[in-house]
Design a protein around this nucleic acid. Structure first.
Lengths: 212, 212
DNA sequence: TTGTCAATCGCCAATTCTGGTGACAGCATA
DNA sequence: TATGCTGTCACCAGAATTGGCGATTGACAA
């Protein structure tokens, strides 16, 4: 198995130096260089074709997150590991959405870092447990259970609403549910009362927002 | 710091026994017992008030995921760690949505398990990197970038659409955007052509689905 | 300069939606 | 038994939406 090519973007010279020392002293790695800002990140990745990119988040000029977006856009399979002192929800969230493959805080030991880079290169997603926790919470939030019951819609009403969400007109709903147009009308009137809305568009957006 | 109380749900006797041996031989833990099915999980948790629940996924009768839902519903802060041989996307996904605080595969060493339980108890979210990768992918999917450009909507059209999504009528949109009713009408006609729809409800659901 | 396109506005007719007031059967529950 | 809820259906009038047909302006590219 050949060596893992590493490139680094970090504005802190001390960290660049210590990373260089770390990776050049391990034969499993090939050091491609470290850069203090990510403004030329895409070109550098293109030229050097690293196996793993180590990216700081709080970069001047272009943020590590934007750089990650840019790199991922051009090289979707590029492995990028976020390496940072911050671990606030928002940063973590955006980094992940940008396509980061791993996320470890700088306070971790250097052996941890070595392991993490190997894992990332291996297609896994190393991250500190505290980060993992944030990620779990984010995912849980994104998939909060339906709040359908809160509005107390009857089964039939839910069915009508579902069809509305799918873009059906009154007639089409009537057709699909094999009931008369006027019944659909009645159901919808009830739905409107319960959801406190008064148009299909409001009902649809409320339904989707509350995952009914 | 007092000992961490552990309760286990796993249908495999061999595993129950080895977990018992493991945790009773470490003073940091207090062994509350192991059960082969989760049908009484909620009551058992209520009676024993464990610090950490170890839950197998592939349980007979009631699945570990359902049990997790049930426990979390009654005790939202309960720490539950999934302990399983499976790591397919779907199971992982559902376990997380159910509220699992950690997710490690059984193949990991016992020392790993001990560490993981401690971390989970400490509010972190231990998970094997391969699981973490799945979680990242799930989150990335859930937040896929807007495909707005695909439909080629102009800025103004996007703005109108946004207002429709918020449940505005033509009149309200006109008001908000300080343009005439007929202009709104025209914009909407263009939007309908571009999105290949012919009603607000369809447009709204398409917009929300594609995160425009 | 010509053509294209976004953004603005207008009018008209057909269709659809909305809100109101009814009605009736069935089912559960108090 | 009475009451309430769900689900079904009907009619009406006013409001909103939809799909045509236009039009003018300004910006930008061929």
């Amino acid at each position: 198995m050949h060596s893992i090519k590493i490139i680094v973007f970090d504005d802190n010279k001390r960290i660049r130096d210590s990373l260089k020392l770390l990776f050049t002293s391990h034969v499993e790695f090939e050091w491609l260089g470290a850069y203090e800002n990510a403004s030329k990140a895409v070109e550098l990745v293109e030229i050097n074709s690293p196996d793993v990119v180590l990216m700081d988040i709080g970069l001047p000029d272009i943020s590590g997150i934007d750089a990650t977006y840019a790199i991922k856009k051009k090289f979707p399979d590029q492995v990028i590991m976020m390496l940072t002192v911050f671990d606030d929800d928002d940063k973590v969230f955006h980094a992940i959405c940008a396509g980061a493959s791993g996320y470890i805080v700088k306070s971790k030991s250097l052996t941890h870092l070595i392991m993490a880079v190997k894992k990332a290169h291996n297609g896994e997603a190393p991250m500190t447990p505290s980060i993992a926790r944030k990620v779990l919470h984010l995912l849980q939030q994104k998939n909060a259970p339906a709040e359908a019951d809160a509005f107390n819609l009857s089964d039939r009403e839910k069915e009508v609403l579902k069809n509305l969400v799918n873009g059906c007109s009154y007639k089409m709903v009537a057709d699909k549910m094999k009931i008369s147009y006027d019944t659909v009308h009645t159901h919808i009137k009830h739905i409107y009362k319960k959801l406190h809305v008064n148009s299909v568009s409001e009902a649809v957006s409320k339904a989707l927002r509350h995952r009914l």
